[in-house]
């Protein structure tokens, strides 16, 4: 009984510290509504049509690929600020295979395949973004500069 009473008190205490005031809850509600609508809007923007892999260096589009239907991997070498980042696009998604940056966070992110997914290598300024093909002009399978 004593243990149960102690557990109840702990639960009440936890609720006490984490419940917040009405102002906090109002702020929470406003934040959640804003995030929900932003998410819906971005989803509608990028989810139209089959996914395309967009590879950017800074503000320049380097390449645009559809995911290979035959599953044969596509290798792309993106030249960034530090050197060459190797990108692979296959049936599992798009990923950085290697990068000249020191941290290699971009390589550790693994595959990305869903609409709206991105992988960024900030030191080398290379970005992989998965976008809907209907957002793009034309229906090319690949553009490479």
């Amino acid at each position: 009984m004593a243990t149960l009473a102690s557990e109840n008190t702990t639960k009440q205490n936890l609720w006490h510290w984490f419940k917040g005031s009405w102002t906090d809850r109002l702020l929470l509600l406003a934040s959640l509504i804003t995030i929900f609508y932003a998410w819906q809007w971005i989803d509608a923007e990028v989810s139209s049509g089959p996914p395309l892999v967009m590879i950017y260096h800074d503000d320049k589009l380097l390449a645009r690929y559809a995911f290979p239907e035959d599953g044969k991997p596509i290798h792309f070498h993106a030249k960034g600020e530090l050197g060459i980042s190797e990108i692979v696009i296959d049936a599992d998604g798009a990923r950085f295979l290697s990068s000249p940056c020191t941290t290699e966070y971009c390589v550790s992110r693994g595959h990305r395949k869903k609409h709206g997914d991105i992988i960024a290598c900030v030191p080398n300024r290379i970005l992989i973004a998965i976008e809907g093909s209907h957002k793009q002009n034309g229906t090319l399978d690949a553009i490479v500069e």
């Binding site: 929470l28 995030i35 971005i42 967009m54 960024a120 290379i126 970005l127 973004a129």
Partner: peptide, 18 residues
């Protein structure tokens, strides 16, 4: 990285931040 595509990440990251 001067790409608006970065903002695709904003809603899920903001949800985690909340």
């Amino acid at each position: 990285i001067h790409q608006h595509a970065l903002y695709y990440l904003l809603p899920p990251l903001l949800l985690l931040s909340v």
